[in-house]
């Protein structure tokens, strides 16, 4: 195993690991804000939770991007040929 594939594997792991940090924090904030909003306005809970799910999915997309990059590195690394 040469260094390039080793670096690819390590970088893939790092990409997923660090790529998950940002969305995790963001989703935490989003959920906290949504909870706050629902506590203030329980009657708007439906709209808020629907918007929350959509927002979470959008945020999650960031982590998914990282996952895609990692998978690219692992399975379809253009440098490895």
């Amino acid at each position: 195993m040469d260094y390039l594939s080793l670096a690819s594997i390590v970088c893939a792991a790092f990409a997923v690991a660090f790529g998950a940090i940002g969305p995790a924090l963001a989703e935490g904030r989003a959920v906290a804000a949504a909870m706050d909003a629902i506590a203030r306005q329980p009657e708007a809970a439906n709209t808020i939770s629907r918007t929350l799910f959509v927002g979470l999915a959008m945020i999650e997309t960031t982590a998914i991007y990282c996952l895609v990059i990692a998978l690219l590195l692992l399975f379809a690394n253009p440098l490895l040929g």
Partner: peptide, 15 residues
């Protein structure tokens, strides 16, 4: 972005 978002989400779930 839409393409990658849909693909990543579904693919990652299956994966």
């Amino acid at each position: 972005s839409m393409f990658v978002r849909l693909f990543g989400n579904v693919m990652s779930g299956v994966f």
